[in-house]
Amino acid sequence: MQPIISISNLSKTYASGHRALKDVSLDIKAGEILALLGPNGAGKTTLISIICGIVNPTSGSVRVSGYDIISDYRKTRSMIGLVPQELTLGAFETVWNTLCFSRGLFGKKPDSAYLEQLLKDLSLWEKKDSELMALSGGMKRRVLIGKALSHQPSVLFLDEPTAGVDVNLRKDMWKIVRHLRETGVTIILTTHYIEEAEEIADRVAVINNGELLLVDNKDTLMHKLGKRQLVIELEKPVTAIPAALSAWKLDLSTDGYFLSYTYDPLKAQTGIAELLQALSKAKLLLRDVNTSQSSLEEIFINLVNTK
C-alpha cells in the first residue's frame, strides 16, 4: 500500500547553521496514528513545519498522497490540517468565525452543517459565539483542533496537543484523536508525554538531534526493546544478597525486603525458575512475587541516551 506521506532524505539547516534535520526518511501509513517522540530541539516541529509548508527544506523531498509538497503544494496542503504547539489564536473573533475563516482559507465553501457537527464533537457548540479571548486554555486547544479539521483534511498533525493541559482534558483529547482515526484521518502527533504515545499510537518514531533513530510498531517496539522485571518481596529483610544468587545480578532495596531481577522476555531461558530454586536453597522465604514491563519512557530514554 502506498504511504500517505513519504519523506525522503529530508534535511534542514537553518540560517544560523543549526542542522535541525539530517537525512530523514520516513513513510507514514494511511489511517494510522504515528507518535513522533523526541526531546526538545530534536527536530519534531521542523519536520512537521516542512510538510505543512511553513519551513523550507534544505534538501530532500516529501510527497503527500503521491504529490510533491513544493510543486503540488495546493493539493498537498488541502489534505493536511495542523494543530500548532502554541495557542496561536486571535483575540476578538468568535469561535464560529474563526472556523469559517480556516475552512475558507483552505478553499472550501461554507458548510454550516459540517462545522456545527465538528463543534459539537469538540464540545464547543455552546461556545460558538464566544470571543476566543474569553475561552479557557483547554477550549482554545479544542478550537485549534477544530480549525485544523474545518476543511476536512485526511492528515492531521498535532504538535504537542496536550502540552500544559490537565489530566482530564488530556484524556478527552485522546478520545478525540481515537475518534478521528475511526473516521479515517491519519494522525501524526509529537509529544513529550511517552504515556500519550503508549496510550494512543499505532507506531512510534523516535527522533533526536535531527536524526530518526527508529520507527516501529508500538507493541513490537515495547516487546523488542522492553525488559521485564521480577520483584521478589521477602518475608524477612536481608542485609546483603547471598553469594549463591550472584549469577542473577539482583538488586536489593535499601530496606532489605525486595530483590529485583531484570530479564529479557525474548530469551528461551529467562532464569526465573532457577532463581526461585536458588532462593529456596538459600532459605529465603518469599512473601510476594511481581513482574512488570518496562515502559516506553524507559525505552525512549535508553535510546536517546545511547545514540
Partner: peptide
C-alpha cells in the same frame, strides 16, 4: 505577531 500567520502559510494559497 500573534503567530496565527502559520495558518495562512500552511494553506493552499
Amino acid at each position: 505577531f500573534t503567530g496565527t500567520i502559520y495558518e495562512v502559510m500552511s494553506a493552499p494559497i
